[in-house]
Lab assay of single mutants.
Amino acid sequence: TTFEIRVGDLRITLHNADEEEIRWAEEALRRGIHADEILRTLEERRR
């Protein structure tokens, strides 16, 4: 599944994310964390 998060002009697309990952990514985007860093962190958490 694919889920797109939008916060203002910012956007990130997550693939195969669970609800916790989606909530975490949305909050991180709101705090101004760059999408590349969010994706990198999620990848590390999945390992």
Score class of each variant (00 low, 15 high):
1 T>W: 04
1 T>E: 15
2 T>P: 11
2 T>W: 15
3 F>S: 15
4 E>D: 03
4 E>Q: 01
4 E>G: 00
5 I>A: 02
6 R>S: 14
6 R>P: 08
7 V>C: 09
7 V>T: 02
7 V>H: 04
7 V>A: 02
7 V>M: 05
7 V>R: 00
8 G>P: 00
8 G>M: 01
8 G>T: 00
9 D>Y: 02
9 D>W: 01
10 L>H: 11
10 L>S: 11
10 L>C: 06
10 L>Y: 10
12 I>C: 03
13 T>I: 09
13 T>M: 03
13 T>D: 03
13 T>K: 03
14 L>E: 00
14 L>W: 02
14 L>N: 00
15 H>M: 05
15 H>Y: 14
15 H>S: 06
16 N>R: 04
16 N>L: 04
16 N>K: 04
16 N>D: 08
17 A>V: 14
17 A>L: 06
17 A>D: 02
18 D>M: 11
18 D>A: 07
19 E>Y: 10
19 E>P: 10
19 E>I: 13
20 E>H: 13
20 E>D: 12
21 E>I: 06
21 E>H: 04
21 E>Y: 04
22 I>W: 04
22 I>R: 05
22 I>F: 06
23 R>I: 10
24 W>N: 02
24 W>V: 04
25 A>M: 03
25 A>T: 10
25 A>W: 05
25 A>Q: 00
25 A>N: 00
27 E>F: 03
27 E>T: 09
27 E>A: 11
27 E>G: 09
28 A>I: 04
28 A>C: 11
28 A>P: 00
28 A>E: 10
28 A>M: 12
29 L>K: 01
29 L>M: 08
29 L>N: 02
29 L>C: 06
30 R>N: 07
30 R>Y: 09
31 R>W: 06
31 R>S: 14
31 R>P: 01
32 G>V: 02
32 G>K: 05
33 I>Q: 07
33 I>R: 07
34 H>E: 13
34 H>I: 11
35 A>D: 03
35 A>H: 06
35 A>W: 02
35 A>M: 02
35 A>Y: 05
35 A>N: 11
36 D>C: 14
36 D>Q: 09
36 D>Y: 09
36 D>W: 08
36 D>R: 05
37 E>C: 12
37 E>S: 08
37 E>W: 06
37 E>L: 11
37 E>K: 08
37 E>M: 11
38 I>W: 01
38 I>G: 00
39 L>T: 06
40 R>K: 12
40 R>L: 11
42 L>T: 04
42 L>Q: 02
42 L>N: 01
43 E>N: 10
44 E>C: 12
44 E>Y: 06
44 E>N: 07
45 R>E: 06
45 R>Q: 10
45 R>I: 10
45 R>P: 02
46 R>L: 06
46 R>V: 07
47 R>I: 11
47 R>P: 08
